[in-house]
């Protein structure tokens, strides 16, 4: 029996464990400071990640960010597992109830805009703009298994096959798009290619001449060479408006420009200095960082309104449990008493 070779095995294990300890030893112990725990929407994640990175360097307070999606984030938030949740749509009725049952109050803070971008393949030469009505015909639940070609949506368009790419049904993006286009959150045809990963949608649209898809503005911005953004006509007689920083900030890109939110646990905001410091830092530095990660910052007057709202620590939501479309942020914040 080769006892020699076996005796060297514990050595191997010891070496492995020792290296682990050494690595661990490099990390500074941070004492009893509370770690700011954040979870929620994958859409808002790049903004929060960037701010967390800067905040951690500046204030030496630790932050963790998870991605559970808007819905998953609210579930954790209403169980008190996280201090802050990110959301790409406002809190829904059943989530409000869950929070209420658990006795958790929240401060609703709009922090940036995103323009949901409807995009087609660059080889598509017949689409110059689309109306909300046309999008509704395309995406409504009635279209399921019926609307299969572009011609069926608008007789002026050719008889090419229509391939649809959209957000996964658990995402806030899906909730907002359906509310804005179909008129009812989560009401959509089911026979389209759905993905939580917007890059999948981008590649789908970029590789198929008859495709149409919708996703966050940042994904369009990064893939401009592969996609064509469709200007949207909000209602009959209105001009077609293409998504851009300017059209979102002046409020003309409707109805697909949407505010992004963070929800802060009201108790933590009051009693946990780390959370308060984080939000203070968030609101102060948002504009620069939001531009850097390709989202659209709030205009100055709205920023001021949000900052004031935070100072007053008003709890509750300005929405009635549905993702209302086209509401002004200042007006929204006034609704919260």
């Amino acid at each position: 029996m080769p006892l020699k070779s076996l005796k060297s095995q514990p050595l191997l294990l010891t070496a492995l464990l020792a290296s682990t300890f050494l690595i661990g030893a490099c990390s500074k112990s941070e004492g009893s400071k509370e770690v700011v725990r954040i979870d929620g929407s994958s859409t808002v994640f790049p903004i929060t990640e960037a701010i967390s990175e800067e905040f951690q360097n500046a204030k030496n307070i630790r932050v963790t960010v998870g991605i559970s999606g808007t819905g998953g984030g609210f579930k954790k938030f209403c169980r008190g597992e996280v201090h802050i949740t990110e959301a790409s749509r406002p809190i829904l009725t059943k989530e409000m109830e869950a929070c209420k049952t658990a006795g958790i109050e929240y401060i609703e803070l709009p922090i940036a805009y995103d323009a949901l971008t409807v995009a087609v393949n660059p080889k598509n030469d017949f689409i110059q703009s689309m109306t909300v009505e046309e999008l509704k015909t395309m995406w409504g639940p009635e279209a399921q298994a019926k609307i299969k070609t572009w011609k069926q949506v608008n007789p002026a368009w050719p008889d090419t096959e229509l391939k649809l790419y959209g957000a996964g049904t658990d995402s806030g993006t899906f909730d907002y798009f359906t509310e804005a286009i179909v008129g009812k959150a989560k009401s959509s045809r089911g026979d389209f290619t759905a993905s939580e990963d917007d890059n999948v949608l981008v590649n789908g649209v970029a590789g198929d001449k008859g495709a149409l898809g919708y996703f966050g503005y940042a994904y369009y911005e990064e893939n401009k060479d592969k996609l064509k953004a469709v200007p949207i006509v909000a209602k009959a007689g209105a001009p077609a408006v293409a998504p851009s920083d300017a059209t979102v900030m002046d409020g003309t890109y409707q109805p697909l420009s949407r505010p992004l939110f963070i929800y802060v646990n009201a108790t933590a905001a009051k009693d946990t200095p780390e959370v308060k410091a984080f939000i203070d830092y968030y609101l102060e530095n948002a504009t620069e960082i939001i531009k850097e990660v390709k989202f659209i910052p709030l205009p100055e007057n709205e920023q001021k309104a949000v900052a004031a709202h935070w100072q007053e620590q008003k709890v509750g939501t300005g929405f009635g449990g549905t993702p209302e479309v086209g509401v002004k942020i200042e007006e929204l914040l006034k609704r919260i008493k």
């Binding site: 682990t20 300890f21 690595i23 661990g24 030893a25 490099c26 990390s27 112990s29 941070e30 994640f45 929060t48 990640e49 967390s52 990175e53 951690q56 630790r62 932050v63 963790t64 960010v65 998870g66 991605i67 559970s68 954790k76």
Partner: peptide, 15 residues
């Protein structure tokens, strides 16, 4: 089980 995505510090040292 809820692993995080952004975490910019290491766990406390085991020794």
């Amino acid at each position: 089980i809820g692993a995080l995505t952004f975490i910019a510090f290491l766990p406390p040292s085991p020794v």
